Amino acid sequence: MKILSDIKLAAMFLRSSLYLDLHRPGPTVLLAGDGRSGTTWLSKVINHDESFRYIFEPFFGEKVPLFEKFTPHPYLRPEEHAPEFERCCRELFQGRIRGLWPDVHNRKRLPTNRRLIKAIRANFCLAWLRRRFPELKIVFLIRNPYAVANSKRRFGWKSSVDHLLDQPRLMEDHLGPHAAMLHKASTPYERYILQWCAINHVALRQLGRDEIFIAFYEDFCTQPETKIPQLFSYLGIPYDQAVLRKTTRPSPTCKKHSAIKTGENLVDSWKKHTSEDELLRAQPILEAFGLDRLYDDAGMPGQDAPQKMQVHLP
């Protein structure tokens, strides 16, 4: 079995790594968001014609040597001087990175655009990246917190919040008022909700709509013919209605119980798998972060939610 596994990995590497990454006209795109928020799915929509070189989770230091020396989910203040991290990011954004992990889903041999980078571990340094690399096109994807928590639980994701508590500057700048809540969280579900709150709180607090494109997973599911052209316009890439077919196809990271494979509703299937007790435990957490108003009672993003949140976030 080990030999077969090694052969499969070698074949995947050969298939994904045979490409030329040249400087081409067009944007380098960073697609960020919480895990299980639909970032892999949306990356397939953006790269529907495979015109980008697709770089998968390069900030995962356990898999990518370029970032192995850095803390997982690093927080950097926007004005912070971090020359080594900046050097590594520059290598990434210029395409000087190769490997089985970052290239595993790349299919383009000669990209006609630059790069599409999908990352769930860069959320706490987006403002820093925006300052250091203003040419980046940053898309920040948000999904209903209950849907994210449910998906993480079903996929067996770690629920630890230690990566938040272990970063003094992150706590000092953004999460200090919620330290007691982070320490006292007694269930994995509560910790999943806290992870979601921390990620979205920091991003929305630091960045405005004029700096990044704030996108909602639910909007792309229910209004793809409107929302996808808006996204493509921001990215400066042509839109073709054929891209709509990609919205009904599962991403490479989907499992057999994902809603898109089981035929469940993509927006509210989480309701069938979330108890009343879990909802009651989550609500005070969302309220404490001021994020309870981001979604309405139907579980959909509110009208102009990001702009309102950036005004009222504590």
Rank of each mutant, 00 (worst) to 15 (best):
G302D: 05
A32W: 02
K158N: 14
E278I: 08
N123C: 12
S186K: 09
L291E: 11
T247M: 11
P111M: 05
D6N: 14
N144F: 06
A282M: 06
H81A: 14
H201M: 09
D304S: 11
A215L: 01
E190G: 10
H48A: 12
R209K: 08
R293M: 14
N47E: 11
E68V: 10
S16A: 14
K184A: 15
H273I: 02
G290V: 00
F155Q: 15
P74V: 09
I117P: 07
R143H: 01
C125A: 12
A11P: 03
A215D: 03
K308F: 12
A32V: 05
T253Y: 03
F93P: 06
A127V: 06
T226V: 15
L20I: 12
T248Q: 02
R24D: 12
G302H: 01
P284F: 01
E278M: 06
W41R: 06
Y234R: 01
S251D: 13
F52S: 05
F52N: 04
L291D: 11
H257A: 14
R53T: 04
E218F: 02
S186L: 07
T226I: 13
Q241G: 10
Q195P: 07
D162N: 14
V243D: 00
D162G: 12
H257G: 09
L42W: 01
L100C: 03
C221A: 15
L235G: 05
V267D: 07
D219W: 08
K271S: 14
L9G: 05
G95F: 08
E276H: 07
I237Q: 01
L235I: 03
Y234L: 05
D103Q: 02
D210R: 07
D240A: 13
I7N: 03
Q310L: 11
I193N: 11
V139Y: 00
P72N: 00
L100Y: 03
P145D: 13
I142G: 02
P65Y: 04
N106D: 01
L31Q: 06
V161F: 00
A147C: 01
Y239K: 09
S16L: 09
D304K: 10
T247E: 04
L4G: 00
A82S: 08
S258C: 12
L30A: 08
E84A: 10
L14A: 14
F56C: 05
L165N: 05
S17D: 09
R121N: 11
G26S: 02
A11S: 08
R115Y: 04
N113E: 11
H183Q: 15
G61H: 08
F52Q: 04
P78K: 14
K44P: 01
T112G: 13
H73W: 14
R132T: 00
R154I: 06
K2D: 14
P252A: 08
E135N: 02
R191E: 02
T247S: 09
L204E: 03
Q230M: 09
P102N: 13
P25N: 14
A147L: 00
E84I: 04
V311C: 14
I199T: 12
A259G: 03
V202W: 05
N200E: 11
P314K: 14
D166R: 10
L116S: 02
S5W: 10
I212N: 01
H312A: 15
